[in-house]
Amino acid sequence: MKNMVEIRWHGRGGQGAKTACLLLADAAFASGKYVQGFPEYGPERMGAPITAYNRISDERCTIHSNIYNPDYVVVVDETLLQSVDVTHGLNPEGAIVINTHKSPDEVRPLLRGYEGRVYTLDARAISERTLGKYFPNTPMLAAIVKVSGVLDPWRFVSDMETSFKHKFATKPQVIAGNMECLTQSLKEVRG
């Protein structure tokens, strides 16, 4: 498959990992890509670990299996590092992005020997600063766009603005905060 990128998301139910996964699919679609965005479902409720996946490529991908050897992994909740083998099958040529205030070197020991690139982003701080609330999915979306290079970051920002204008048509006051959240996140990814 030409230029196919596979991404796995780890989060907790209710935190927006699935939404972030679908937003990434939206953004990639807007830039002309073929996309897949799909969550792996169980009966769990709020707080339980969940997984979601993206495939992004230049031609239609027909594969309908889960992703076992992702190019990138996004961890939306750092507490998952204790309980979930988030780097399992992760391509050593790829990277992992973790939502934490810690530095990449500080979290690397928790990654069960993963030797690829490690990035971190303090999504809580950015989110609280720009949105006034903790919504980790918008910062993490920006982070994976930057780290994976699957989309041009500035094209992504402008596509997202269009999407926010549509999504928040009834409350335009939140658009500026979301845009600020995206741009700050793009800048603050540490790796």
């Binding site: 699919a25 939206d26 073929y34 897949q36 965005g37 799909f38 239609r60 309908h64």
Partner: peptide, 12 residues
């Protein structure tokens, strides 16, 4: 159609 595999998967 296949539950979750296509029902919940966003695709082109």
């Amino acid at each position: 159609q296949d539950g979750f595999i296509t029902s919940h998967a966003v695709e082109n």
